[in-house]
Simulated scan of single mutants.
Amino acid sequence: MHARGSGPRVMMTRQPTEGRSRNGGLRVGEMERDCLIAYGASMLIYERLMISSDPFEVQVCRKCGLLGYYNYKLKTGICSMCKNGENISTMKLPYACKLLIQELQSMNIVPRLKLAES
């Protein structure tokens, strides 16, 4: 039997390591995710993919939809494209999603996040 509460993580993706020999966690893949969606277990998916894995807080510009950054001197979020902090919202994404967005931007594909007021 193999299970763990917390343990080592991969540096690049911040997700749990694989395999019992490396004290890795049991991972939820795409097929397992699809099964959980089919059974309507949305809170379990949220817990496994966000809370237990790799939550990351990002700043998103409501005007252009691009990721920004947090300026610790000014204590505010700043958009990378607009160069101001007026229309910045903070949200939580899985770190792997943020990494995917940055890799697409490096290939000159610019995904934009459309935020709705809640």
Rank of each mutant, 00 (worst) to 15 (best):
A96L: 10
Y69G: 03
G68W: 02
K92M: 08
N84H: 15
E103H: 01
M12K: 12
C97F: 07
N84I: 04
Q15I: 11
C82R: 15
F56R: 13
L66V: 13
G77S: 12
K63G: 00
G77E: 01
K63R: 14
P55Y: 07
R22M: 02
E86D: 15
E47L: 12
G29Y: 06
E103P: 00
L49D: 13
M107G: 07
E47V: 11
K114S: 13
S52Y: 08
I101Q: 06
C35H: 07
S52M: 10
M91D: 03
Y46M: 10
A38H: 09
Y95P: 01
R14A: 04
K92F: 02
A41I: 00
K75L: 04
S6L: 04
S118M: 04
I109L: 13
M12D: 05
K63A: 09
F56Y: 13
K98N: 06
M1N: 11
L44T: 14
Y70R: 05
D54S: 15
S89P: 02
K98M: 02
G19Q: 06
C61I: 03
Q102R: 10
P94R: 15
E117S: 08
D54K: 12
K98H: 06
M50H: 15
S21K: 08
S53K: 15
E86G: 14
I37Q: 08
N23M: 03
N108I: 02
V58I: 12
R20N: 09
G29I: 02
R48V: 08
L66S: 13
V60N: 10
V58C: 10
C64M: 07
Y39S: 09
M11W: 03
V28T: 13
A96M: 11
A116R: 13
P16R: 11
A3V: 13
A38I: 04
R4L: 07
E47Q: 15
M43I: 03
L104Y: 12
S42R: 12
T13W: 03
T13G: 04
G85Y: 03
R62E: 11
V58R: 14
L49M: 15
L67K: 06
S106F: 00
G40S: 05
S42I: 05
G68N: 03
C79V: 02
E18A: 03
L26M: 10
R62Q: 12
L49I: 13
G25R: 10
K73Q: 05
N108M: 04
G29H: 10
C82K: 15
C61S: 12
E18D: 02
M12A: 04
R33A: 09
G40Y: 01
T76Q: 14
Y95K: 06
D34G: 01
R9L: 07
L36F: 01
L93W: 10
A38P: 02
G77N: 05
G85C: 01
Y95L: 04
G7S: 06
S106Q: 08
L36C: 00
K98G: 00
Y46L: 11
L93V: 14
A3L: 13
M1P: 07
Q105M: 07
E47F: 11
P16A: 05
E30K: 14
M1V: 11
S80P: 00
C35W: 06
E86N: 15
A116G: 06
L49Q: 15
N84P: 00
R48N: 09
K75N: 08
G65H: 13
G5R: 15
K114Q: 14
G25T: 02
V58P: 04
S6A: 05
R20S: 11
I45H: 04
V58G: 03
L36K: 05
L36S: 00
